[in-house]
Lab assay of single mutants.
Amino acid sequence: MPEGSASLQLAVGDRVVYPNQGVCRVSAIDVKEVAGQKLTFVTMRREEDGAVVMVPEGKVLAIGVRKVASAE
């Protein structure tokens, strides 16, 4: 991610809310080559049905992904 860009610090195992998809758990953060460029992807699995969603790390905030609020 370019320096100075806002990002959401995620780790494998974090629970997040993905708008219009529901609650997901981060299952992987991997670098993949797409069209000759190396990009970091956040892979999330929906808790409702296990569907897998992959989002480029740089788009996580723009999409509206946020961490699940704690009970505290």
Rank of each mutant, 00 (worst) to 15 (best):
D14G: 00
R25H: 04
R25L: 13
A69L: 08
L8D: 08
V68G: 06
M54S: 10
P2Q: 12
C24V: 04
V55I: 12
P2L: 11
M44R: 00
A51L: 11
I29L: 06
G50E: 03
M54H: 08
K32N: 05
D30V: 14
A69C: 08
G22W: 04
V53E: 03
D30G: 10
D30R: 08
I29P: 01
E48T: 12
R66E: 11
V55W: 05
V60W: 14
S5Y: 10
G22T: 05
A51M: 12
V16W: 03
A35Q: 10
A28D: 05
K59H: 14
R25Y: 13
S5R: 10
A51I: 09
E47G: 01
K32W: 14
A6C: 04
A71Y: 09
V12I: 10
S7F: 11
A35L: 09
K67W: 06
Q9V: 11
V31L: 06
R45D: 04
F41M: 14
G36R: 02
P19S: 07
E33V: 13
K38E: 07
K67G: 05
Q21A: 09
E57G: 13
R66P: 06
V17R: 06
R46P: 01
A62Q: 14
T43I: 14
L39A: 06
E57P: 07
A28I: 04
V65K: 04
N20S: 11
V12L: 05
V31N: 04
P19K: 06
P2V: 12
V60F: 15
I29C: 00
D30N: 10
P56K: 06
V68S: 06
A35W: 08
V55M: 09
A62R: 07
V23P: 05
A69T: 13
G36Y: 02
K32P: 01
A71I: 12
V16H: 01
E57T: 07
V42Q: 00
A35N: 15
M54L: 08
S7W: 07
G36N: 05
I63M: 12
E72K: 09
L39C: 01
V60D: 05
M54G: 03
V60H: 06
T43G: 01
V34H: 06
A51W: 15
Q21I: 15
G13L: 02
Q37E: 12
T40Y: 07
G13C: 00
R45I: 15
S7L: 12
V53Q: 03
P56W: 14
E3N: 12
D30C: 06
A35H: 13
V31C: 00
I63T: 09
